[in-house]
Amino acid sequence: MEKTDVGVLKPEAIQSKIFTIRGVQVMIDRDLAELYGVETKALNQAVKRNPERFPKHYCFQLTNLERDEVVTNCDHLSNLRFSYQMPYAFTEFGVSMLASVLRGETAAKISIQIIDSFVSMRRFLYENAAIFQRLDTLERKQLETDGKHLRPIPIL
């Protein structure tokens, strides 16, 4: 993990571990465990010991399909393909709550950096929403145009 100072992660190192699953930005338990410097099993046990702190909109377990998509898109998570345990995904709120159940100065500092990365990415998406909308419109028009050219010619 790339750090700028002792205990300070580069924003890009965190942002590269944030995915959109089920329409929300999340981080996978293994990536969070690495950032917090704990074992994935220990992180998940802390969550299971405190279920009242982790409702479904804070933390959820991936489906087989979601796991396969994450593995396909991220080489560093390739070992998840063979795991018998489905990984958990944590939203920004779940990451914040992790700091309270993991405790410690490191957990608090890392959580702040991760949440800042979530906010930064959300700000980027908001500020560029018009551009993304225009690209989506252009892509749809292109697909429609391509579809018209691929239609079979009726035989008379």
Rank of each mutant, 00 (worst) to 15 (best):
A107E: 02
V38L: 07
M86P: 00
A42Q: 06
Q113S: 11
F90M: 02
M121Q: 08
V24D: 05
Q133I: 01
Y84G: 09
C59Y: 03
Y58Q: 11
V6H: 10
K56G: 04
A99P: 08
V71W: 02
Y36F: 15
S78T: 11
K3S: 01
E66P: 02
T40F: 10
E92S: 10
V101L: 10
V101R: 05
R151V: 09
H76M: 01
K10T: 08
Y84P: 02
A108G: 00
I115Q: 06
V38Q: 05
V8W: 05
L62E: 03
A13S: 10
V8D: 01
N64A: 13
R81M: 03
K148A: 13
F19P: 04
R134V: 13
F93Q: 14
N50L: 01
D146T: 01
K48S: 15
L80R: 02
P154M: 04
C74G: 00
E92L: 01
S111K: 04
Q113Y: 04
A99V: 08
A89T: 03
S111Q: 12
R81P: 00
S16N: 12
K148G: 01
E144V: 00
A89M: 13
T40S: 15
L143H: 09
I115W: 00
I155V: 09
A107V: 08
V24R: 12
Q85D: 06
F132R: 13
L32S: 03
R122L: 02
D116Q: 14
I153L: 15
Q142R: 14
L138C: 08
S78A: 12
R134C: 07
E34S: 14
Q133C: 00
K148W: 05
Q25A: 08
D5A: 14
T72S: 11
F60P: 05
G23F: 09
R103N: 13
D136R: 13
Q61K: 14
R67K: 15
F60C: 06
E66W: 03
R67L: 10
V71G: 03
K10R: 14
A33D: 07
A99G: 15
D116G: 05
L156G: 12
D29A: 15
R67Y: 01
G94A: 05
S83E: 07
P152Q: 12
N64G: 07
K148R: 11
I131Q: 11
G104Y: 11
A99Y: 13
V95C: 14
Y126T: 11
D146Q: 04
I112D: 14
N79W: 07
S120M: 10
I28R: 00
A89C: 13
L65T: 13
E66S: 02
V70S: 00
H57I: 04
Q85F: 10
F60M: 04
Y88N: 08
F118W: 00
E69I: 09
D68G: 03
T137L: 12
G7V: 11
E127D: 11
I114W: 09
L125A: 13
R151D: 09
V26K: 03
E34V: 08
